[in-house]
Structure formats: C-alpha cells, structure tokens
Amino acid sequence: MEESSRKWAVISVAGILALGMILSSLIVSNSMVKLKMANNTITVTGSAKQQIKSDLSVWTGNFTTQSPQLSTAFNQIKSDQQKIKDYLKNQGINEKDMVFSSINTEVRYATLPNGQYSTQVEGYRLHQQVEIRSPDVDKITELSRQTTDLINQGVEFQSNPPQYFYTKIADMKVKMLSLATKDAMVRAEQIASNAGSRVGALRAARMGVFQITPLYSNEVSDYGINDTSSLEKEITAVMNCEFEIKR
C-alpha cells in the first residue's frame, strides 16, 4: 500500500510538471504572436509647410502729457487725442476703427535731496493708448512708420510695432493636417518598399503642435509658435502616423 502511494505521488508530480511545461509553452507562444503583431506596423512622422500672408493687423500707439495741474494735463491730453484723430482720418482711417483706452493718471512726487520722494505733489502725468484693427495690413504697416510725424504737432507719441494675424487659421490647419498625413504615407511607402513590404491601413495618428513662424525661420517649440511680428509667415504641421505593414 505504501509503495502504491509512492507511485501515485511520482505520477502526480510528473503530471504537474508536464502541465506546467505545456502552459509555459502556450504563454511563450502567445507572447511571440503578440510581439510579431506589434512589429507589423511602422510609425512615421509627416510634415507640411505653407506660406501665408497675414490678413489682419493690430496697431497701437501711446501718447503722454504732464503738467503741475491735473486739469491742465487733462485738457492737454484731450487736445492731443483730437490731433491724433484728425491725423488718422487724413491717413484714410475711419474714426469708428479708432479705439482709445481710458486715461491713466500718474501722480509725480517731488524728490528730496537724499533721493527719497516727498509727499509734495510735483505734477501729473497722463497716459492714453489708441488701437486700430484693420484687414488692410499694408496700410497699417505704413501708418505705424509715419505716425511719429505727430511729434511735430507737439504730441508726445510712441508708435508700437504692428501685430499681424491670419484669421483663416482654423481652415488652414485642417488642410495642413491632411497634407502632413499624405506626406507620412509617402515616407512609410518608401521605407516599406525598401524592406520588400507594402503599406496597409492607417492604424493611429497623433497631431503635433503647429509652428507659425516668420519666413525662412528654423525656430521650433514643443508648445508651438504663433508669430505675430511678421506680415509674411510660414505654417508647419506635423502628424505622427502608424501604418499597418503587409508582407
């Protein structure tokens, strides 16, 4: 009886080991299948570039006046505002397109001999800004360079560089993504052809960030660039695509 028990124990251990080997073989086989399927794709980055010209410009100018008396300073800045309106009208700008900010008042205190400020008011300095938005980008570009002529009229005026925007960027992005995807497919086909394979269906696609840069610029950013300083720009789209590879 004892010898019979030993035989069954040996058979049971052998059976367990055999079953373990079979299961291990199935697991390894399954892993190899998955690995083979995982390697049956190719990931390629495609890109597309397009030159664009801005169709909206935003220009701002700042003007300032100061006087020992607040009322005098206020009257002066209102007079300067009217001079600016008249000047811009003569340049072909409609008054409804001129946006004047609220007047900012800065109190100037007298300086003591030790360099510290006293509580005595020395005068008032008033600041105001004018803004113009226009689709006539060429006119605004020229205007931004000429408005310093207001200085000859006694206006303490500073012209800021215009900002340039492209208002159809949403539609452009759709077109650019399509072109970038086609470029990725061409690249994938070239790589697959060299390996004696062909490209199948698109498995996955991930859009990269858009880069809107001045013409001929090589600048890029992980967060994307949206240049507003240049009238002529270049937009770049990137797509990371995963394609099925067929033997």
Rank of each mutant, 00 (worst) to 15 (best):
E3A: 14
K7N: 03
K7D: 06
A9C: 12
A14G: 15
L19A: 15
G20V: 13
G20H: 02
S24N: 02
S24H: 05
A38F: 15
N40P: 03
N40F: 08
A48C: 13
K53W: 04
L56V: 14
T64W: 08
T64C: 07
S67Q: 12
P68D: 02
I77T: 09
K78T: 08
K78P: 01
I84P: 09
L88F: 14
N90W: 04
I93P: 02
I93M: 00
S101G: 06
S101Y: 07
S102G: 12
I103L: 04
N104G: 07
T105P: 00
E106N: 04
P113Q: 04
P113H: 10
Q116M: 13
S118P: 10
S118M: 11
G123W: 06
L126Q: 03
Q128K: 05
V130K: 04
R133E: 12
D136I: 11
V137C: 08
D138C: 01
S144D: 09
R145Y: 10
Q153T: 07
N160E: 12
Q163E: 14
T167H: 07
K175N: 12
L177S: 13
S178E: 11
L179N: 05
K182C: 02
A188K: 08
I191S: 00
A192Y: 14
A192N: 07
A192W: 07
A192H: 05
N194I: 15
A195V: 01
S197M: 06
S197V: 10
R198P: 03
G200W: 03
G200M: 06
A201C: 05
F210C: 10
S217P: 11
V220W: 13
G224F: 02
T236C: 14
C241N: 15
E242W: 01
E242K: 10
F243M: 06
E244S: 13
E244M: 08
